[in-house]
Design a protein around this nucleic acid. Structure first.
Length: 834
RNA sequence: GCCCGAGUGGCGGAAUUGGUAGACGCAACGGACUUAAAAUCCGUUGAGGUUUUUCCUCGUGCCAGUUCGAUUCUGGCCUCGGGCACCA
């Protein structure tokens, strides 16, 4: 025999090193078959190359790997690619400290990460890998920027933006979490700067509407988060004229309650509103300036908090209520925000909590215009914010408020002073960054021609290598003369380049398209390949990207659809958010010092144990706590399988060609064969239909337990060799996606030439799995009183008869009358007795 | 405040269509093997009662409801987690 030195004990490290090399050499992880097979595009969110992968990465990639392996072996043409989201701040920050250039550290980290992914046995074809920070990739990110620019979806504008002082750059709204920087957790402040934006707001409605196309495959939770973020609200826009002016001055407001228009008793402008200056009367100027100053000192979070005291002051001017002609005073107040709506509101204290609090504080009249029952109250104790009947509203009095909203708006529309309007909380995506390690924005500023896009033929605009990238608040590229100074593509004159780089979320907004044709030289992606592979059938990754990456990728796809470059409107048919891995109830983190790294585990127990435990520790979509004894358990199970198989190696080799007749099996032999087929069904369905890897593994454990029972009962001499061979080989194939190394090793010990990972997935035989007897439960008044092992498919009458014969059932119906009998075939008989 | 989830033994969790609650694993305990230990193998393990290889009662966050029957469906509440939040 080839292997005389077969190991008696399971030594993962020795095995795994060997197979990594061999699989590499043989390239067995190109899972593409041919275009006749049904395609399947399985994708896990690609990592930022931080060095060693953490446990969250491991969970992400192991889950995808197992599913991809099973699908490929069920005859799919699989695309299962990997790459690196390689631009970004950490490399640059590290460079500032260590002096190692971001490109060098990034490539070194990619090397580490790639090695770790291979070590964990993830089935990726690394020849199709992409790296977003390399010019052959970011050239197309730049090209896409220019496409957006040409479509009028990219514009540079001055706006109050989020500024992170620690990162020395602006941030998109989505990157500000609770007023803090998503990256470094420091407070974000508002600055007015001229920045590049992508007009995602133009797609707000479609991002909502197209949820219909993916709601089957996305968890409702994620769609709800996005819906919340987009924040659609329906209402009306109403125009108010400023009173007593020689020239007409008109201020529009957005309201969701046009039905309360008769209850407007004051009007508020955001303190930063451009008209504040103009309408403030001299007598009030000093006061207004003072209040503005106080408000400007409040942080965004402070000002945004509902508990913060409302402050404001009168400006001296009035607006005219367009419906009843009443003059109402214009105030400024901290609770009105410039960013939302028009930065101005009509205040209805009777029916808005905030306006009520403000009016009470400053003694502004409160007028009830909505009543729950149509009656007018003397004095409202609190704002009434629900629907009701309109009161004190001239022609509309008596109208239900829901109807009133429509009627009032229609009325305003006829008079040309208002209209139906929809507002979104979603803001345009700020995409420029004042940092070095990103793709340069391909724009040139010429004194004569203005803003000029870099021609496609001149792409990529290469990121210069030798740059002093210490943060100064300006992009480091601004100090790189050879980069900045260029000639205008339009007139040939002297010009300067844009020196900001792009948000790295742009790189990840289209990478799934690049994977379809990763080596394409002439275009971002080959349409033929994209049309074939896209959309991604199953996307896997952390839910923390719900309002960042996932919303941007959906937006990009819609823009490409409008540009006629792709034929689908949604990039990811199904999305599975895996849960986080905690330790001691807390999220693992370096700063907390509660880290368990995958390498610790695979160095100690092997990758198969790591993989098995990751899958077994809980449902893939829920947060789980890491347990060291759980890892031991996973390792114990693998060792148990190892011993079972190794103990039968000789026997299996002997009986390889032997057939066995399943109809002749009896007793425990029949039981265990039945269990095998039940396990095939369960494992297949758990993995492919439900992503329930934990229960798939418990099914395999049950099978192994039963196989041990058979070992014990049969004894060496009397074992059914052909049956043992069949059980063992099928068990290994079922286990191989989860424990690829060990199963491969055992497979080869049996003198198989081919890799176990190329063996077709076992086929479930319904006949073999069928139970011939079932445990039926006998109940009286819904309580279990007895059980019996009965032939499956027993008739109702027979089942009822057997149940009635039970001593315990008799005991409980004695002296009572059976008023009803429920029989559920193969399950239970229930007597209702009174 | 609004919108989503979740709540089951000592612990992680299972119960897929309303039909045996607690699969599988961890931990614990008992036994076998061993000079001994580790490893391994075999058992026991929701709580309480009991006539202790028997059977009974209770039990899936709490309170109701629907049903012959509810971890599962409905209504209300509590707790925890997540998202949004002076959003007009």
């Amino acid at each position: 025999m080839e292997k005389s030195n077969q190991q008696k004990t399971y030594d993962a490290t020795a095995i795994e090193k060997k197979w990594i090399e061999r699989w590499n050499r043989e390239g067995i992880y190109n899972l593409k078959s041919n275009k006749k097979d049904p395609k399947y595009y399985m994708l896990e969110m690609f990592p930022y190359p931080s060095g060693e992968p953490h446990m969250g990465h491991a969970r992400n990639y192991v889950i995808g790997d197992v599913a991809a392996r099973v699908l490929a072996r069920r005859g799919h043409n699989m695309l299962h690619p990997i790459g690196f989201d390689a631009f970004g701040l950490p490399a640059e920050n590290a460079a500032i400290k260590s002096g190692i250039h971001p490109r060098e550290s990034t490539l070194a980290n990619i090397e580490k990460m790639r090695a770790a992914l291979k070590r964990m046995g993830i089935a990726y074809d690394f020849s199709d890998e992409i790296i977003t920070s390399e010019p052959d990739y970011y050239r197309w990110t730049q090209w896409l920027f220019l496409l957006f620019y040409r479509m009028g979806l990219a514009e540079k504008k001055e706006a109050p933006v989020n500024w992170c002082n620690s990162c020395q750059t602006v941030l998109a709204n989505e990157q500000v979490i609770g007023g803090k920087c998503e990256r470094c957790d420091s407070m974000v402040i508002k600055k007015v700067l001229s920045q590049w934006f992508f007009k995602i707001t133009k797609y707000a409605q479609r991002l909502l509407d197209d949820m219909e196309l993916i709601q089957e495959g996305w968890p409702e939770k994620v769609l709800a988060i996005q819906r919340n973020w987009i924040g659609r609200s329906e209402g009306a826009c109403v125009h108010f004229k400023v009173a007593d002016r020689s020239k007409d001055l008109d201020i529009a407001v957005f309201t969701t309650r046009p039905d309360t228009l008769y209850g407007v008793t004051f009007f508020i402008l955001a303190p930063e509103h451009e008209l504040v200056e103009e309408i403030t009367k001299p007598a009030y100027r000093q006061n207004v300036e003072q209040v503005k100053k106080i408000i400007s000192q409040q942080s965004d979070v402070e000002r945004g908090a509902a508990e913060t005291e409302k402050i404001g002051c009168f400006t001296g001017s009035y607006v005219v209520n367009p419906l009843n002609g009443e003059k109402v005073p214009i105030w400024i107040a901290n609770y009105v925000l410039l960013e939302y709506g028009t930065g101005a509101i009509m205040a209805v204290p009777a029916h808005d909590e905030r306006d009520f609090a403000f009016a009470s504080k400053y003694d502004i009249p409160i007028r009830q215009v909505i009543s729950p029952d149509g009656k007018v109250e003397d004095k409202l104790k609190a704002a009434y914010c629900q629907e009701g009947i309109m009161v004190n509203s001239d022609p509309f009095t008596g109208t239900p408020s829901t109807e009133g909203k429509k009627k009032v708006t229609e009325h305003l529309q006829e008079k040309g002073i208002g209209a139906f309007e929809v507002n979104f909380k979603l803001k345009d995506w700020l995409i420029s960054r004042q940092r070095y390690w990103g793709a340069p924005i391909p724009i040139i500023y010429c004194q004569k021609c203005g803003t000029v896009p870099v021609p496609d033929s001149a792409l990529p605009v290469k990121l210069p290598y030798d740059v002093d990238f210490r943060p100064t608040g300006l992009s480091p590229l601004a100090y790189c003369d050879q980069f900045v100074h260029t000639t205008c593509p339009a007139c040939g004159g002297k010009a300067k380049r844009e020196t900001d780089t792009m948000d790295t979320f742009l790189c990840s907004s289209w990478y799934f398209l690049r994977y379809c044709s990763p080596h394409e030289k002439e275009q971002a992606f080959a349409p033929k390949e994209a049309d074939y592979w896209m959309p991604v059938d199953q996307y896997i990754g952390g839910i923390e990207h719900a309002t960042m990456h996932l919303i941007y990728a959906r937006f990009f796809t819609k823009v490409l659809y409008d540009a006629g470059l792709v034929k689908f409107r949604e990039p990811f048919t199904k999305y599975f958010p895996h849960g986080v891995v905690n330790l001691g109830g807390k999220r693992m983190s370096k700063s907390r010092g509660n880290l368990v790294s995958p390498s610790e585990i695979y160095n100690r127990y092997g990758s198969d144990t790591l993989r098995l435990y990751i899958l077994f520790m809980g449902p893939a979509d829920s947060a789980v706590d890491w347990s060291d004894s759980g890892v031991e358990g996973a390792n114990r199970f693998l060792a148990r399988v190892w011993r079972l198989v190794v103990g039968n190696i000789g026997l299996i080799a002997e009986s390889r060609k032997g057939q066995f007749d399943q109809t002749e099996l009896e007793g425990l032999e029949k039981e265990v064969y039945k269990k095998l087929h039940q396990t095939i069904k369960k494992v297949t369905e758990d993995i492919l239909e439900r992503f329930n890897f934990n229960t798939a593994i418990s099914a395999l454990m049950e099978l192994v337990n039963l196989m041990y029972k058979y070992e014990e009962q049969a004894g060496q001499g009397e074992k059914n060799k052909a049956l043992v061979a069949e059980l063992t080989q099928k068990l290994l194939v079922l286990l191989s996606p989860m424990a690829p190394f060990m199963t491969e090793e055992l497979w080869h010990m049996m003198d198989h030439g081919q890799s176990i990972h190329q063996i077709p997935w076992p086929v479930f035989d319904q006949n073999a799995a069928r139970e011939e007897t079932v445990t039926m439960v006998f109940q009286v008044n819904g309580k279990v009183r007895d059980k019996a092992e009965l032939t499956a498919g027993l008739s109702r009458q027979e089942a009822e008869k057997t149940a009635l014969a039970s001593e315990n059932v008799k005991k409980f119906i004695e002296g009572k009358k059976i008023v009803k009998t429920i029989v559920v075939p193969n399950k239970l008989v229930n007597f209702v007795a009174r």
